[in-house]
């Protein structure tokens, strides 16, 4: 464990908590893409199948349980409890356009052709693009609530910090996973446009409005 990865995990945790707080306090899922949350749930389910078979550390297990339960809870809140506030008309990104290419790529490009490894690889590829429905929805509505933009900033930062973690592990632990690194770079790059808007607008106290 290194500081980059720990802070990255805490940013990830903060993002998920921020999202749950937003939903619970505003009693609304307005502006949230249920499809992205479904994809994140799928990322955790396919990545943490080794939760009971491969013990890494208490920290690792506790975080996996939290990420799994919170992502499933978020999908539940969006599609059942606060369904009335779910803006399905703007959440129209076709998930199959992400699921199928990620599945095919995971079968072709992986470290080992075994079910667990292919599912892990699928979850890595899917996580890189899972935010697209949410970013697409914001581009359609042209705006995002401030707390939603804080959520996105924390979520984008987490994988950016993981890139620093991979650099650190490459130089000091001689540990390098090309699949995770390439997917992580793609994932972080997808947030760059949002990061620019967040820093130039939200941090100036303005609402996140996309140029129409």
């Amino acid at each position: 464990m290194n500081a980059f990865r720990l802070v990255g995990d805490l940013c990830h945790l903060a993002a998920i908590v921020l999202l749950l707080l937003k939903i619970w306090k505003s009693r609304s899922v307005a502006g949230l893409s249920g499809k992205s949350q479904i994809l994140f749930g799928l990322v955790f389910v396919t990545r943490y199948l080794d939760l009971v078979t491969n013990f890494v550390s208490p920290y690792n297990t506790i975080m996996k349980v939290f990420f799994l339960s919170s992502s499933i809870a978020t999908v539940y809140l969006i599609y059942t409890k606060f369904k009335a506030t779910y803006d399905g008309n703007h959440d129209t990104f076709r998930m199959e356009f992400l699921l199928i290419p990620c599945a095919l790529l995971a079968i072709v490009v992986n470290h080992e052709f075994s079910p667990m490894e292919i599912l892990w690889t699928f979850s890595i590829y899917l996580e890189a693009v899972a935010i697209l429905p949410q970013l697409f929805m914001i581009s359609k509505t042209g705006e995002a609530e401030t707390i939603t933009s804080h959520y996105l900033f924390a979520l984008g930062s987490y994988r950016g910090l993981y890139i620093m973690n991979w650099l650190y592990r490459y130089y000091y632990e001689n540990n390098f996973d090309v699949i995770a690194v390439v997917a992580g770079i793609v994932q972080t790059v997808l947030y760059c446009d949002f990061f620019y808007l967040y820093i130039t607008k939200v941090l100036q106290g303005k609402k996140l409005q996309l140029p129409a």
Binding site: R5, N54, V56, N60, H111, E112, E117, A180
Partner: peptide, 10 residues
């Protein structure tokens, strides 16, 4: 061949 990865990251 790629050695088997022990995925120790979240």
């Amino acid at each position: 061949t790629d050695e088997k990865f022990e995925h120790d990251e979240l």
